[in-house]
Amino acid sequence: MPFRNLEGDSGFVVPADPLARFDELLTALDAGRGWMQDKAAIRLAAITLLVTPGDAKRIAASTRTASAVLGERLGWFSGVDESVRLVIAAHLVKADDHPEAFVDELERVRGMFRADKLRRGGVYEVLAVLVLRRLFGKIEPEHVERFHEIYDAMKAHHWWLTGPEDFPACAMLAARPEEPAAIGTGTDAIYRALHEQAGLSRGDPLQTAAHILYLGGLEAPVIVERFSGLLAAFRAAGAKIGTGEYDEVAILSFVALPAASIVATVRELEAGLRARLKWLSERDALSLGASLAFVRLAGASGELGTLADAKLLLDMQTIVTARQTASIAAISATT
């Protein structure tokens, strides 16, 4: 499968012990945590930087500096709060990118979005530009046009589900070789197969899983069979897999190992995380365990770097959605 090779990039080093490296980065990042910054952002930043070589304290300092620059340039009205900025900053440090250059590109590309009559997406536009920049370097009008066409193709199949929150996924799919209409049809085929063959509930989480699974370039019946087998193995091992965990299962579906081996690795790492982070919820432990397992199993083979990026960006999107939901609930409680 044509994914970016982690081992082939001298800027990435797969750690011998992903859990220990995560703990080291988490400690360094947490030392500078602001009072408005939630712990989920720290965890995701640490996961993002897992394959970045160097001293953990230096990496954490670079990430904090990049986050501060983003805060100055983006401002309060961008929809990008301190927690989301930190994870974006971690992506920039991982890619050896510069926050000033990123914001300059963001402003330029937003102008192209408006010229192409793409609806405004707030923070999701920022995440989409981050993805497009990672995929294409300098973003050209044809990239924006293709991104817009993929969004419209998805909207044609699921107009009630597809919105700005799907911008990051559309950006990831822009690197696929198929025509936008074929991408829309292909993601819909996976969505339908997940519902009809695997019996999963329709909705946004299922659409997100379908977007991830399409990145592998496999036919819907093949990848859905793999997904279903992994889902069954997780549940047989006692893991509580609901709609919120579909993306974890989707990402791990690309690891070329028996389902039982994948699940055993995730559960082992979950136990290690819960032992170190007593306050960690079961759901968060599963998500982090899946991310660490992905690095250990797939990263060590030098494959699937693009899917790893997709998972982290979707996790970032989850933070955005969760914070927006909390804000709406707080406003409703006062009216």
Rank of each mutant, 00 (worst) to 15 (best):
R4K: 08
F12Y: 14
D23F: 01
D23T: 07
L25K: 05
L25T: 08
R33V: 11
R33Y: 01
G34Y: 00
P53E: 12
D55Q: 05
A56T: 09
A56F: 02
S62G: 12
T65G: 03
A66D: 09
A68N: 10
A68C: 00
G71K: 02
E72F: 01
F77A: 14
S78K: 08
V80I: 12
D81A: 01
V84R: 01
I88G: 05
L92G: 10
H98Y: 02
F102Y: 15
E105F: 00
L106T: 05
R108I: 07
G111H: 09
A115N: 12
A115T: 15
K117C: 05
K117L: 14
E125V: 02
E125I: 01
L127A: 01
V131S: 10
I139M: 03
E140I: 07
E142W: 08
E149C: 02
Y151L: 14
D152E: 15
D152W: 00
A156M: 05
H158N: 12
G163S: 15
P164R: 06
P168H: 06
P168K: 04
M172I: 03
M172R: 02
M172F: 14
E178D: 14
P180L: 06
A182I: 08
Y191Q: 07
H195N: 11
L200P: 08
S201W: 07
L213K: 06
E219K: 13
F227K: 08
S228V: 04
G229S: 12
A239G: 08
E245Y: 07
D247S: 15
E248A: 11
A259V: 09
A260T: 14
S261V: 10
L280S: 05
S281Q: 04
D284M: 09
L288E: 12
S291R: 12
L292A: 10
R296S: 12
L297W: 04
L297D: 04
L297N: 06
A298E: 08
A298T: 06
L304T: 01
A308R: 13
L312S: 13
M316E: 15
A322I: 05
R323W: 03
T325P: 00
S327T: 13
S327M: 10
I331E: 10
